[in-house]
Design a protein around this nucleic acid. Structure first.
Lengths: 187, 187
DNA sequence: TTTTCGATGAACGCTGCTGTTCACTCACCT
DNA sequence: AGGTGAGTGAACAGCAGCGTTCATCGAAAA
């Protein structure tokens, strides 16, 4: 039953790809099951069979989308001891990821309030982890709280969007600016 | 025909208040005419009569809401000559406004993509004006572009939200941080 | 060859929103 | 006293989405 399973997988794949495309163009909130089915060349019923609930579909989508991105690699940053260097490398990695996935990230973050809890939590956990790695390189001194807050701000997608999309900075410049900011906290 | 007009005005007012309340709790995108009418103790038809299209209603809402807020006063900032002082005063004024109107601003900005053009443009124009006033105090030197970008970022509602809501800074601290950031640009 | 099962297509009932019509009431204004 | 018109209540037609059921097709697996 090899080919059988492959066919099933292919159908499932087409559905996921259709959903990812719509999530990245109309936004998750405006993506109906009917639209996904139509784009996948499949019946609504088939979609329901593969993904009983919205959460399952959403998870499959983010998995598939991430698999064709180059997500940020906090593990890599950890190897860097110097806090400023680590921060620079981390923000550069994050901003590169943000820019490459801008459309999807914009729409998903915009509709995040309506997304299943599991998705929202995963998003936030990922963020927290990155911030943790970037913040832990700094010596425990003085303005710890403010520094962590500013690092959290610098690492946020909304910050990249504001600086590079709305204000027109390059990723490089935005990283410099944010690193300077963090460095100037607690003086 | 005095009392007659007053009655009409009162009905209109009740509708606007209902709409404002719903916009500030469920968000504009999730606010239906039916819900507004119900909350105003009025028929859907009456709502349609007072506000033929969504834009009219939306404008009345933002007018009414703003009238019971204390909006930022860029005119006041302009009197301050020193760029750092002006920026400090301006951001403090903005962040105070953002905090007081947090709920509404959060939901409206979240749903801004689905709002009538007139609304979105008014929002952006208001923003641009504030940024202009804050940026024009600085001498025309070196990193002009970056400085303006950073000021634009500092003045954005999303920035306040990130720093003070998500990262837990006080308004005061956030202002300090952002002023420091702008000051450190172009060194 | 027969069984199995993924996928189909068509239908159903439900919810909720939109915008519009009509006849009607009742309080205010003239 | 009578006209005006804001507001009512009920109904209509339309759209879009949801989730589910059923009989059926067709091709891979046994």
């Amino acid at each position: 039953m090899r080919k059988r399973a492959e066919d099933v997988g292919r159908t499932r794949q087409r559905i996921v790809e259709a959903a990812v495309h719509l999530h990245g163009t109309a936004g998750p909130a405006a993506t109906s099951i009917a639209a996904i089915a139509e784009r996948a060349g499949v019946t609504r019923l088939t979609v329901y069979r593969h993904f009983p609930d919205e959460t399952a579909l959403f998870q499959a989508c983010s998995g598939h989308w991430l698999s064709q991105q180059q997500p940020p690699r906090p593990e890599t940053w950890e190897a860097i001891g110097d806090p400023v260097e680590r921060l620079t490398a981390g923000l550069a990695d994050l901003y590169r990821f943000y820019r490459a996935g801008e459309q999807m990230l914009t729409l998903v973050s915009r509709d995040l309030h309506a997304a299943p809890d599991a998705i929202r939590e995963a998003w936030e956990a990922r963020n927290r982890h990155c911030v943790g790695v970037l913040a832990d390189a700094w010596p425990v001194a003085g303005e710890q709280h403010t520094r962590r807050a500013v690092i959290g701000h610098a690492a946020a997608f909304s910050t990249w969007r504001s600086l590079c999309r709305e204000q027109g900075l390059t990723d490089r410049r935005a990283v410099e600016v944010m690193v300077t900011l963090v460095g100037s906290v607690g003086d």
